[in-house]
């Protein structure tokens, strides 16, 4: 008697178990693939593009992102360093990228 088989007991069909966190950013219609906002991406790209060994100065960041406020740049920098994309070097105003891509 094999009638005891349980076809898919206890297995709910989640299509995307890992996506719950991405839902926090709803309202941003054009998120890049890496999950950063466009502003965060711009900041990250500028820091990535800096060839100096000590990294990019916050002052340079400000000069190149004149459409952003100092507060929003700081916010992006904070976020990026929290995520591990960038880190401060010689002082808290210099940042380098960890991303090798």
């Amino acid at each position: 008697n094999k009638s005891h088989s349980q076809p898919s007991a206890g297995r709910a069909s989640f299509s995307n178990p890992g996506m719950s966190e991405a839902g926090n950013f709803s309202g941003n219609s054009f998120l890049p693939a890496n999950g950063l906002t466009p502003a965060q991406n711009q900041v990250l790209n500028l820091i990535k593009a800096c060839p100096r060994p000590e990294g990019l100065n916050f002052h340079d960041l400000k000069n190149q992102l004149h459409h952003m406020t100092v507060a929003s740049i700081k916010q992006a920098v904070d976020f990026l360093s929290n995520e591990g994309h960038i880190y401060s070097t010689v002082d808290d105003d210099h940042f380098k990228s960890t991303d090798a891509e």
Binding site: S81, G84, H85, S88, T89, T98, D99
Partner: peptide, 20 residues
């Protein structure tokens, strides 16, 4: 300079933790 290395190591750890 130790500070820079430490910051970098910490950042890489955070990044790695994110990517798990």
């Amino acid at each position: 300079l130790v500070r820079i290395q430490r910051n970098k190591a910490a950042a890489l750890l955070r990044l790695a933790a994110r990517n798990v």
